[in-house]
Nucleic acid binder design. Structure first.
Lengths: 199, 199
DNA sequence: CTCTTAATGGAACTATGGACCCGTTATGGA
DNA sequence: TCCATAACGGGTCCATAGTTCCATTAAGAG
């Protein structure tokens, strides 16, 4: 019996997983990582406490599974035709997500959880790898068009757009509005044009 | 009896606080935020359990106090004479701090704790405000020298240097070496020169 | 449809984080 | 130096997170 749910993943098992992940997300968004315990999750999900402990074991383990679930729901990138437009669209998408009360708190909680366990950290990294790879092509295309220096690290440019937004969310604080998003996108474009991301 | 330690802060009380904060920092660095409980802190600090619960009450409250203690120990900024030099020095300082096993884990844990409670969040913001204000003058001077456009938000430039490093530490992962630090500094300078941080 | 068994979940148990009581210590002002 | 009391800390109690056991349910193969 390795990995409960791997042999009979259909029907009830899938319903239980969905209910548990949903409850976990709710609690994380409302109360934060520190107040998450599996007993509470089981109660909210209307699922047996034993089931939750058996399948996920620890809080960080549950968050890791939540992250792989989140990674599966990736949105397609924008295609505005220009580098500025695409990156600004990305910045605003990230900004709206982080500024949304539920989503923002969820991300903060998930990142906090990733702080505590390598397994969860890896799940988080995979999540961002997915997102970055989804958006990197718009930078690649700009390089092909000659808008950016050859050898520019496309993925690094995409990360540079998100970084200031996450920095505000997690560390330094400050407003997370559309102006912040646009500034992040503009700064990334300007730095990329100047060759700051050439490998 | 508001705020235990506010009326007789000397002698034993100060020693207890130092021992507790030291123990808390050790545990956070070694095991992370999730495994921090006040009973354990009291044991390590060789201090009465009751004392810890009375003075700090919760894990996040203790971390908040730890943060104000950390904010008091600010390093003076570098003065290399050039904007690039100063910001690169700042980037490398941050990078060395975050890459150091103990310090890096401590920062991750402290930020995770700040995720869970407004009081702690505010303490964290104050911590970064202190740091940013310490370094902002080197950008101001560059503006005065005409190296950067008038109206450039100096503090925002400083934040732009740290952001990519924290983004790696907390969210996306990836190497945190000197090359990363220099890239962050270069990108911030390039963006600032292009006017991306003009208010 | 039937049967095997994967997976769930109720219930009882244990370990421990956190709260409280009250006696002890030592700070800091007179 | 002395004293009022701020602050500490040992001991005890309680709520509950997490574990274990076993009966019940239903997935999915034939």
């Amino acid at each position: 019996m390795e990995e409960p749910g791997s042999i009979r993943p259909g029907g009830r098992t899938a319903r239980v997983r969905a209910a548990v992940l949903r409850a976990a997300g709710d609690i994380l968004a409302e109360r934060g990582f520190a107040h998450l315990d599996l007993t509470d999750v089981a109660r909210r999900a209307e699922v047996g406490k034993t089931t939750v402990y058996r399948r996920w074991g620890t809080v960080t383990g549950l968050v890791a599974d939540l992250l792989t679930d989140m990674a599966d729901q990736s949105l397609p990138r924008a295609r505005t035709g220009s580098l500025e437009g695409d990156l600004r669209a990305n910045a605003r998408l990230v900004q709206r997500t982080l500024a949304d009360p539920r989503q923002g708190n969820l991300f903060r909680a998930v990142i906090a959880a990733a702080t505590c366990e390598p397994r969860t950290t890896e799940a988080l990294h995979r999540f961002y790898d997915t997102r970055v790879r989804e958006w990197a092509p718009c930078v690649e295309e700009a390089i092909d068009r000659g808008e950016l220096p050859a050898g520019t690290d496309a993925e690094e440019v995409v990360r540079a757009v998100s970084a200031p937004l996450y920095y505000r969310l997690l560390a330094a604080g400050g407003p997370l509005d559309e102006a912040t998003a646009d500034q992040a996108a503009n700064a990334a474009v300007a730095a990329a044009r100047a060759g700051a991301f050439v490998r």
